[in-house]
């Protein structure tokens, strides 16, 4: 069994959704993660805050937020156990993040020595 990181890229939810929508989205996320955990295939997860995001660039240039022209940025990740990349992709397809048209879930196998 390999480990895969599913990386979410999306807009700042607080900017595009109402509190009720955020609430629904939270529940869906909890159900989705709970479903993976119920299969004993959740390794870890972290959500990332949009507030106070900075990007440090070449020669020490610091900018607020990584976004520039692109609105979708990394909002969090989970690490799952899966038999194959296909299974990891199947997990990713269930992510509520994908309800946003431009949002993505990147699937990456975790390097193990």
């Amino acid at each position: 069994m390999d480990e895969f990181m599913l990386i979410f890229r999306h807009e700042d939810g607080a900017k595009v959704a109402s509190p009720e929508q955020l609430q629904t989205w939270m529940k869906q996320t909890m159900d989705w993660v709970g479903g993976i955990a119920a299969q004993n295939k959740l390794v870890g997860k972290n959500g990332l805050l949009f507030d106070d995001a900075h990007v440090v660039r070449h020669k020490g240039v610091v900018t607020n937020g990584p976004f520039g022209e692109i609105k979708e940025t990394i909002g969090g990740y989970i690490i799952v156990k899966a038999e194959s990349v296909e299974e990891a992709i199947a997990f990713a397809k269930g992510s509520p993040v994908l309800q946003g048209e431009w949002n993505t879930v990147e699937v990456r196998k975790v390097y193990k020595r």
């Binding site: 529940k27 909890m30 993660v33 709970g34 955990a37 119920a38 004993n40 959740l42 997860k45």
Partner: peptide, 27 residues
Amino acid sequence: EQTLQYYNLLLQLEYSPIAALNRTYAL
């Protein structure tokens, strides 16, 4: 709803088959 969410969190903290089964019933 509450029961389901507690199980969702419980399974993330510590997996057990019985919690997985009960969570599915709550679902």
